[in-house]
Structures are given as C-alpha cells and as structure tokens.
Design a protein around this nucleic acid. Structure first.
Lengths: 343, 343
DNA sequence: TTGTAGGCGTTATCAC
DNA sequence: GTGATAACGCCTACAA
C-alpha cells in the first residue's frame, strides 16, 4: 500500500502510532530483545499492518551492510544438472528470506558477474561448474563462497561423491562380466568429471582390467560430444562391450549414436551415464546411470552459505560429500559373449 | 579493493583527490551533463581506478528509488521451456547492468515472491507460466510487468503465436492425409495451451474435419500426462492416426507410450509436439514439433521491461507476437491407409 | 520503556 | 565548475 505516490515508511507508521520512528524499527525488526511496552507494541504492529508497511530492504541493506541476497553462478543451462542445482538453491534461499541473483556465465565473464554481485553487496556466492582455480586469484576475496562439485581448501564445498560414482560404475560393469570397457569424457575439465574418470579407471585396474588408451575417448561434455565419441568407438573392429560416460548428456549422445548405428542396447553394448537427469527415462531403452542428488546439492550449498553468513566470525563450515547410487535401467546388461564387433 | 575492513567509498576517492564527495559522484555517474573541469575529472577517474572504487548499488538504489534488478517468476523447471526463458532474460539483463532475481513459484506462493520482490524495490517483473488473472487483483499494482505467453489488456506481453502454432499443426497433419486426429492437453490451464488447442481445432473444422470428444484428451502438461493420455488413445479400437500435443513434454510422454506399446512412429501414428525443446532430438524417431523462440521470449521480455522502466511516463510498449514454425522431424508422416487399430 | 542524534553511501539541489 | 546541504529509509547507539 502507498500514500499517494510515496511508499509507506517506518516514519509514517511512527507518526500514526504516536511514537518515534526507531521505536517502530525496534518493534518490527529486532528480535525478542526488543523491550517495549506490550501496549505500544501491539498498537504499532496493528497500524503497520493496516497501512501495509514493509521495510525497504535496500535501506536495511545499506545500514546493516547486508543485502540478504545470494548469487548463483553456473556456466549455462545446456546441462540440466545446473538447472536442478539452481532450483534447489532457490527454494531454500526463498524460505530463508534471501533472494537469488542468477548469473549464467560463459567462462569469460564470470569475473564481471562477480563484480556486479559485489556491487550489490551480495552476502554470498554459489559457484557450480566453473573451476575456482581458473579464476583470477583475488576474484573471490572477502566473499562468502560455497563451491559445488569441486574440492577446495579455501572454500567449503558441496559435492556428489564423484570418485565413488566412478567406482560404482566400474563395479557394476565388471559384475556384468564386462572386461573391455571404455570411458567417454572431456579432457581438461571441471573436477567432477576427472574424479568420475579416476574412480572408474582405478577400480578397473584394481580388478585387473586395464583400459587401453584407444578406449579413453575425449569429448565435450555434451550430447554432440557423446555422439561423436561413441560413433568412433563403434567403428572399432573390437569395440568395447561397455561404456561409462562422464555425465548423462554424453551418455545420451552415445545412446543416440547407437540408435543411429542400429546397435542394440544393452545387448551389444552397455551404456552407463552419471547424474540422473530427467531425460534419462525418455529414451528407449532408458539410460542406466549413477544418481547424484542434484537439487540437494543446491539446497545444501545455500544452507552452508547461510551458516557462514550468519555467524560471521566462526570457522567456515565443513564441506559435504553426498552419496551417489546406481540406478540400473535399460542400457546396462550382461556382456554378450558373441559380440566382438557384431551388431 | 578495500582499505582495511571498510570498502572503498566515493568519500574516500574525494579525500584523496582533494575534491568533495558529490563531485566524485557527479563525475562517475552522471553522463554528459557533468560540467566538470577536464583536469579534475581525469584526476578523480584515475584515483577511483587506482583504489578500485565501485559505487554501492544499494545506496544508489535507495536514493534513486531503483534497484536495477528484475524479477523473473516461473512455475518451475519441470518444463525446459521456462529454463530457456530465464536464460534468455538473464543474458539481456546482465548486458544492461540489471540483476535477475529468480523466483520459482509453486502457484501458491507467487504472491509472497512478489512481496519479497517489492521489498527489494524491484524495477520490473517478468511472469511466465502463471496466469496473471489468477493472482489477487492488486498483486501487480504499481509494478512494471511483462507477461510471457499470455494475452493481457493490462500489461505488455511477449508470446509465441500459439494460435498460429495450432493452425500450423493442423495444416501439417491434414496435408499428410490425416483425418482422424487427436489433441492432448491440460483442461484449465495457461492461455498458451488453450490457444494452441483452439487454433488446431478451428483449422481442422474449417477443413471439414471434426474432432470427436473422445479424441480430445485432457492431461497434465507433463511427460506423465502425455504418457497416460496416449495409452488411452492407443487402446481405442479406432485410434487416431495423428496426435497433436499441447507441448513437447506431453508429446514426449506420448512418444514413450508408443514405444512401450510397440507402436511405430510415424507409421501407425503421427505425433506432433510444440515448443521445440532440446530433448526432442534425443528420442528415436526425433519428435516433430512447432518451434517457439523460447530464449527470444525471455530476451524480448527484458527489453520491453527496460523500455518501460527507462522512460517511465510513456505509454507501455506494445505487445509482441513472435512467429512459430514447423520443424518436421521423424514422428510425423503420411497417413497409413491400413491402420485402423493395427499395430 | 522510549526518543534523539547520527550515519550507512549515494544522488539531487542548490548556492558560491 | 564546484562544494555544502539535504534527502533516501533504516538501524544502532545512547540519553532521557
């Protein structure tokens, strides 16, 4: 509500209630510590309610040096993973009365986005999908930061257990009898993908299965990347019987390549992704994957950030590693003995 | 940069430059109108640069009564359509120096989100996927609003041409020889879906093809909704030879139902979606659809909003209707004469 | 228990 | 051209 052209201010409430403006402020913002006459209190509250007073958060922010806003920076929405993270973050933030400033950053302009967030006196930043180490050294100075899916000794982190994901993938494929297995993933990329790869390769090796270099395919972490890489794998005379992909997008691209080549899944090739995005159940057969609690990552990141913000001095909260689990659907199955190149 | 524990302020710059603080402000913010001695100007600019001065946008906002921030409210990310809209909006907003406050609103708490945005002195709001008419009458008072994909005589609007989309769909299916066609879509829903349905039905009728009520299936605008509805259609003794869906999610659900039932696309049933989301090309055969320029919707909505904000008094900018177009892929094909219930 | 004074970091309006 | 001075709306002292 407003009076004429100017919004309702605390001073307005004060005037009508016959008290001073700070008293109003005291009653409406300050916690239980506010020792005010119950009679005054209820009168002020009533009037504030009546004329629809709502504190101006910009003004609050200016004096309290807090904006009650969080920034979320992701590389883009090509990968539904980030969509989930943002969604989870927004829910928790909104419940806590924080706004979410959303930034989509094409690697180049992360720094600019960070500057813009700083100018708005942002209370904290969540970064997903961008390696913090690739940023200019001081870009994150004096900022409350929580990183998603990347380890750091400088900032608290929330991550799905990527190493474990790789292990689970390897164990699953091994248990199905696969011995000639491949991995598709990007070369120099965000830590999550590297860990998935490492966990996968190490577990294979521990089981006495080595992965020759021609079965380690480098590809962008996209559908197109997976498609191309899988095509190359299928073209090999002795193609692998199972393929683990750095993420579900890659796996879906690979899935599509199989479809295009007339290769039956999982009869001749088993295919395993990682993340568990919604599209997985859209393809036929549905994609087996390692589920990562994506929304939960965003939600927890916000909680960590709030803790960090709200008791400022304390030591930064401990990082969290969230469990992942195998979701077996239609693209993984027992190795087929006769399939050395057969279609 | 900061000095000790306090951030660099304009006053700090002023002190070092030996001028008054307002002069600094004048030089750094005000455009050409600033009549300032070139010598002073360059000195101030140099010092500001040196100590890394950046204006506090909260303080700016307080006095200018502007936050340089926009709100975007969408019902959720279940539908990639909204993801695209948000993405397009963010890009344009960021380029113009505006922040995007992202709100995911489960119908219930739209009002709360709007209140929160008001409290932050938001400069404008973009609403997608939520019928403005379902909001309390005064919820949008005194707000700069742009609506996406819904007509309104109160606010400017950016929309894909949904009526046309329905027409195109009908023409396409008719041209392929289909005469027994169905529609799957939600009952009481956002305007876009209603228009698609209307355009579709009207064009059919104009061509002398009526759609019996059993071929008008009501379903949630989700994958699950499409799946269920399609199953019901396939179970009919004389099932339709072509189906148009309110959006791609529904169509993908229907696609899946066909796969599960062993029904070949488009041989026995043609399937047509609407929106053109990325998943469409993931399924086999790829989904034919009517492409809506989703990112562009978000981008234009922001431009409209900025125009509205920046010359306040002027009449609200005209609404925009963006063209849609048929994207024929693998799920639509000529009617098969022999398919009265055949599989 | 409440009011007064002062300041958060800007921008706007004037005199000088 | 430039510098006081006064907002903007709120919060934190401290005094009454």
């Amino acid at each position: 509500m407003r009076i004429g052209k100017h919004r309702v201010t605390a001073a307005e409430v004060a005037k009508r209630a016959g008290v001073s403006q700070p008293t109003v402020s005291l009653i409406l913002s300050r916690n239980p510590k506010a020792r005010v006459a119950p009679e005054t209190r209820s009168r002020v509250l009533k009037i504030a309610e009546e004329i629809g007073y709502r504190p101006n958060r910009l003004a609050q922010g200016l004096v309290r040096r807090r904006s009650f806003a969080l920034g979320v920076i992701v590389p883009g929405f090509d990968n539904p993973f980030y969509v989930s993270v943002l969604s989870g973050a927004e829910r928790v933030a909104a419940e806590a009365g924080y706004a979410v400033l959303f930034c989509e950053a094409g690697k180049v302009d992360v720094v600019q986005h960070l500057e813009a967030l700083r100018d708005r006196q942002i209370d904290g930043v969540i970064i997903a999908g961008i390696a913090a180490t690739t940023l200019p050294p001081r870009a994150l100075d004096d900022l409350n930061v929580v990183l998603i899916n990347q380890p750091s000794d400088r900032f608290p982190t929330v991550a799905g257990d990527s190493l474990k994901a790789g292990e689970i993938a390897a164990e699953h494929l091994l248990s199905l009898g696969h011995r000639r297995v491949a991995f598709i993933g990007p070369a120099n990329s965000i830590p999550a993908y590297r860990f998935r790869e490492r966990g996968f390769v190490q577990t294979l090796r521990a089981a006495g299965v080595s992965m020759p270099s021609e079965l380690l395919r480098r590809a962008d972490a996209t559908i197109a990347g997976g498609y191309t890489a899988m095509r190359a794998l299928l073209a090999m005379p002795d193609h692998p019987t199972a393929v683990f992909c750095a993420n579900d997008l890659v796996a879906l691209g690979a899935h599509k390549a199989c479809g295009a080549a007339g290769v039956q899944l999982p009869r001749y090739v088993s295919l395993l992704g990682c993340d568990d995005i919604e599209m997985d159940t859209l393809v036929t057969p549905e994609l087996s994957t390692i589920a990562v609690p994506t929304r939960e990552l965003g939600a927890r990141a916000v909680r960590l950030l709030l803790r960090q913000i709200e008791h400022e001095g304390a030591k930064p909260p401990a990082s969290q590693l969230l469990p992942v689990k195998l979701v077996q659907r239609g693209t993984t199955g027992p190795v087929n003995k006769r399939n050395g190149g057969a279609r």
